[in-house]
């Protein structure tokens, strides 16, 4: 059963560089006070664009019908 939509999840090793923020088509990402990135779960559509550009490789797309 579909437990919800797919969504970007950020690992704690995020370096807060902000690269992902710039590519998100839904403006779902923001750098929280220079510490790390937070995902707006309402806005994120799980497209995976952010995961492709993250230089630290800390974004994964989780959830969705497949899980």
């Amino acid at each position: 059963m579909n437990k919800g939509k797919s969504i970007a999840e950020i690992h704690k090793d995020c370096v807060a560089c902000g690269t992902c923020v710039k590519v998100c088509p839904r403006s779902a990402l923001s750098v929280f006070k220079g510490v790390g990135v937070v995902v707006d779960r309402e806005k994120c559509i799980g497209c995976g664009k952010c995961a492709k550009v993250c230089p630290a490789g800390v974004i994964s797309i989780v959830g969705g019908a497949s899980e």
Binding site: V15, A16, F32, K33, G34, V35, G36
Partner: peptide
């Protein structure tokens, strides 16, 4: 810079 921010706002995050 991230280290400084972590010290200041780590808990909030």
């Amino acid at each position: 810079t991230q280290g400084i921010c972590q010290l200041k706002h780590g808990k909030e995050f």
